[in-house]
Amino acid sequence: MQVFYSDHFVLPLPPEHRFPMQKYRLLRQKVSTIPGIVLSEATGATDSQLLLAHDPAYLQSLIRGTLDPRAQREIGFPWSEAMVERSRRSVGATIAASRVALQEGVAVNLAGGTHHAYRDHGSGFCVFNDVAVAARSLQRELGRRSMRIAIIDLDVHQGDGTASIFANDPTVYTLSVHGERNFPFRKQTSRLDIALPDGTQDTTYLEALRHGLQTLENQWEPEFIFFLAGADPHKQDRLGRMNLTDRGMKLRDAQVFEFAKKHQLPIAITMAGGYGLDINTTVAMHLQTVQAAATYWNDYLEHPAHPPGV
């Protein structure tokens, strides 16, 4: 199974910054021990690719370093050339994963899931919206603007930027299962939003996800899935405010892969958020997602679906 990474491109942050940049390197090291994994460093997304989902003025302000202080604060990172390059690489990894998944059933970006980035501004540690860019890139490369894509966002925070970008796009179904009272405090409208209270435990979460996937199945016939597998619903996450156990997180992933298997759909996975009290817990949650993806990859190769548009 092909897995893409970009952790050699590190965003310089002050020591007290709460974003766990080192989790990407630690995760890659763990993933490298899984049999059958092929690790590849991602190339950066081009300007033309980024413009499929982002405003030209916003892109130019990032490239030139002319973002105003308020916009930088909303992103949560200080501007630097390294910030822009790392963000390009993260998007590039999701684009690469989607291309491979189309042919091989599944592929993974060990970063990505930057779902708070809007068309014209960044937010919440998200500079570019990698899944939005990759979805539009996939449609363009296949010459099928009508290709039906489902985005299953299981980060604990609502995918507000993604919902906004695809608000008027009938080809993309956005499903977000998130904390009702968590960031962002001004939510956008996904095709299907499932907002859960603080302290939600395994049984309630898994039932809500089951309902969401059943609704998706009833309302939509996707040809491709992007899965944002946030580690932050875990009970030991500093920012999550939910109470899922290790087993609950594993069963969450299993539901998504069972849905994909039932419909024989290719799936590209991004790691999205994770801010564990112990960074090793976050890495462990991401690792079990990659392990589940590897199992799905083996199943898919045994029963390959016909790639959409091919």
Rank of each mutant, 00 (worst) to 15 (best):
E258C: 11
E207A: 15
E41Y: 00
A82L: 09
S123D: 13
K235M: 12
C126H: 03
V156Y: 03
E180T: 07
D68W: 08
E141Q: 13
R28C: 06
P170K: 12
T114W: 00
D169C: 15
T162P: 03
S32V: 07
Q29M: 15
H306K: 11
L39F: 04
K23D: 09
A93H: 03
Q72P: 03
L62E: 06
E41D: 05
R119V: 06
L301P: 06
E85G: 00
R18T: 14
G212D: 02
V100P: 01
E258Y: 01
H306G: 00
Q29K: 13
P170G: 13
P14A: 14
H286M: 08
W220E: 13
L209W: 04
A208I: 05
A82G: 02
L265R: 05
Q214I: 08
Y205P: 07
K250T: 14
P15W: 11
A272P: 04
Q291M: 15
R186V: 15
N280S: 14
Y296Q: 12
T66F: 05
L239N: 06
V156C: 07
E207T: 13
D193A: 14
A268E: 00
H178G: 01
L196D: 06
A101G: 06
G212Y: 08
G113P: 02
S87L: 10
V283F: 02
H178W: 10
M21F: 07
H234E: 05
F125Y: 15
G105D: 01
Y24L: 07
L62Q: 00
R70F: 05
Y24Q: 01
P233I: 14
E74A: 11
L265I: 12
R73Y: 00
P266Y: 07
S137T: 11
S123F: 09
Y300H: 12
R148G: 11
E104I: 07
G113H: 03
L301W: 11
H306F: 06
I34Y: 02
R247Y: 09
W297R: 01
G276A: 07
S98V: 08
K30Y: 04
G122K: 03
F224I: 15
L277D: 09
F226L: 11
E223Q: 14
L11S: 05
D278R: 15
F257M: 14
D47H: 01
H116A: 11
T203Y: 08
N168H: 10
E81Q: 15
F125I: 09
G276Q: 12
L62H: 04
Y300P: 04
S90P: 00
Q29Y: 00
G124E: 01
L239C: 07
A45P: 01
R247H: 12
A117R: 02
R70C: 09
A195V: 11
Q201V: 13
V84W: 04
A293G: 13
K261C: 06
